[in-house]
Nucleic acid binder design. Structure first.
Lengths: 205, 205
DNA sequence: GTCTATAGTTAGATAGAC
DNA sequence: GTCTATCTAACTATAGAC
């Protein structure tokens, strides 16, 4: 797989620029001219490579979603202790989001604006998420008495909320709580372990 | 204050329709024609009432943001026990979001697409949030030994994440975890108390 | 592969009748 | 206050030269 950040080919520059502009403006707000400018190339070249704005968006979206579905499989089918799986899970999500801060809002917005069309175009992707694996591991931890009784979907929702929401709400947090960019980056870095601590404190028996 | 749901005046119908369309499509994606259709009136009438698309958006946005900043003041300046304040806080946010499911994504998107212009237009609103009050109460709870040591900003971020993220990620959750609309509504209803339980479990000493 | 120039379409805004 | 008709600007997409 091609590195989505370092790629300096024209196609790579377009994708990188499009990610940036789609993030800032959303699908409708993004202008092909903006993307061309950001990529340092001509507008017509965008159509040469990706035929239409929609096709370009689809390409980016697919890449984004495939990144959002992370190491779950490998972590949860490993023989790590349960708490280590929690730590690996949250760490993987937060690390991914720090490297690609645009992805969470990007994916979530795309789903809101195009829930129907989404199912048709990208319905294959979610099936790759081994949700059952995660559910099973949580259930085992409850049954063995390692953690307090909790519904697996609730715990999964809470884990994802704690990992991803700060990236979506970042501008509001910084404004309301008056936090500078470097300060916020530090906070996000700390959350790699803090979030797991917070969760484990809550569920341990 | 006028009820934002029941209002059947033309202005009320426009605002209600605009909320719906802006939620579904975002600012750029929303068409004045869509809003007019949804309101059952003519496109020109939108401009008669709100002069421009931007003015209409601003009106809605301000209402939305003022709803998102809730009962914090009254709850946190009350003499309720700390855990009850946590329960009141999370319950208020989740209840608000159940009644206005479009608000969280709406507000967060607006901040992402227009962080600069936002500061200028709506910078007055966040100052109304008594964040210091909440921070102080958390600090008191830590110092008294009622809860384990935790940074107030971290706890605030976690509370808001757990309350609001499910509304933003709803379409993805339902798709990935294969949950029907009525099922998800039930889950959200349960979270009114579950979220507080999850938090209190995590911070209690 | 990459560019300039332009065609074709859409949508925000306004004029003017009722 | 509300409507129909229309102007105008912006933007996607393509044609065609290099």
């Amino acid at each position: 797989m091609v590195n989505t950040v370092t790629d300096t080919s024209t196609e790579g520059k377009i994708l990188s620029a499009a990610r940036e502009v789609f993030l800032q403006k959303g699908f409708s707000g993004a202008r092909m001219q903006d993307i061309a400018d950001e990529a340092g190339i001509n507008k017509a070249l965008l159509h040469y490579y990706f035929r239409s704005k929609e096709k370009l968006f689809e390409t980016i979206f697919r890449q984004a979603f495939e990144k959002l579905i992370p190491h779950i499989t490998e972590v949860f089918s490993s023989d790590l202790p349960f708490y280590d799986k929690i730590r690996a899970f949250t760490n993987a999500y937060i690390t991914m989001a720090i490297e690609n801060p645009f992805i969470p809002l990007f994916v979530l917005n795309a789903m809101h604006t195009d829930t129907e069309g989404f199912q048709k175009k990208f319905g294959d992707i979610p099936k790759k998420v081994p949700i059952i694996l995660v559910k099973t591991e949580i259930k085992k931890a409850v049954d063995s008495g390692l953690i307090r009784p909790i519904e697996p979907p609730e715990l999964i929702m809470n884990m994802l909320s704690l990992c991803l929401f700060p990236f979506i709400a970042r501008p509001m947090f910084q404004m309301v709580m008056n936090i500078s960019d470097p300060q916020f980056k530090k906070i996000l870095e700390q959350r790699k372990s803090e979030v797991a601590d917070f969760i484990i404190h809550s569920i341990k028996n």
